[in-house]
Nucleic acid binder design. Structure first.
Lengths: 146, 146
DNA sequence: CCATATTGTATCGTACGCGATATATTGTTA
DNA sequence: TAACAATATATCGCGTACGATACAATATGG
């Protein structure tokens, strides 16, 4: 048995698992808000800056447009965002928050930070650990994105 | 704008992104081997211990059987594993490596560690950083799995 | 200015993840 | 042991991810 190929030695498997479990921790709240985790990511991008073309949203999330386009189509159908052709560049679709999409920020702020805090309260990591973790993940991300 | 809801402050988004990018780094090699990343995870479980029921594989990977069953069906169709009814408990499907599945371990060991090492060589993290990262991810995983 | 390359978005196909449900087998208990 | 609960797996539906491809609009070079 090759030690390098053992599951327990793999950072990637841990990232994969931690991501799924944290996403699952978000899910009950997001379901009440009527959205999914990737949709929540799109909303965070738009809460930071409204009226962005599909490409900018995809770049911000490091996703391809063939992932983001159908995601936005579903969100539009739910009345969370709207899309309209760009005026300067007619190829672009400019994505904007609807009133419903803006409302979701308040609801998210009212529920998500406290719930995630609760769910992670038993975790021994301190604030400084999370900060270092964030930096280390950033350096992995920076290394791997071309 | 609520600082707690900003994308840059979120550990979860970093985990999600780092996972996707590392998985993408694995993909070219795994594609040559004819498998996907989740299939590679299943193989690692079987390389550790052959002839396991679906449930044990799912538990090892912290996945649900409704994810693992179709995965195994695809792997069986490709001739990487085979499944047969359990003798003691006829409800179980015992999953075993085929010769092709066993061969893949050698091929994986020949290519994956060096390739991943190359791709992450520009990353400033040291071995001790990866070790601590692994421990911290484990404590997040341990906290969130019920 | 026109042919061509590039860009922005959309569509299609495949493989996950996972909630919900179904079914067969085994365990338990009255 | 017959009725019922629990377990192991499978199936279905939906929403991502992403490679491959298509198409319209814009940019560019001759």
């Amino acid at each position: 048995m090759h030690a390098e190929l053992q599951l327990d030695n793999q950072i990637c498997f841990r990232l994969y698992t931690a991501t799924r479990l944290i996403t699952q921790a978000y899910t009950p709240i997001l379901t009440k808000l009527g959205i999914t985790y990737p949709q929540y990511l799109v909303l965070m991008v738009l809460w930071e800056k409204d009226n962005q073309p599909v490409n900018d949203i995809a770049h911000r999330l490091l996703l391809e447009t063939n992932t983001v386009t159908p995601l936005l189509q579903r969100m539009e159908k739910q009345g969370i965002v709207c899309r309209k052709k760009g005026e300067k560049d007619k190829r672009q679709q400019i994505v904007s928050l609807t009133a419903k999409g803006k409302e979701l920020e308040k609801k998210a702020f009212a529920k998500i930070p406290s719930s995630m805090g609760d769910q992670l309260s038993a975790c021994p990591l301190k604030l400084e650990d999370y900060k270092r973790l964030a930096q280390e993940l950033d350096s992995i991300i920076e290394t791997l994105k071309k």
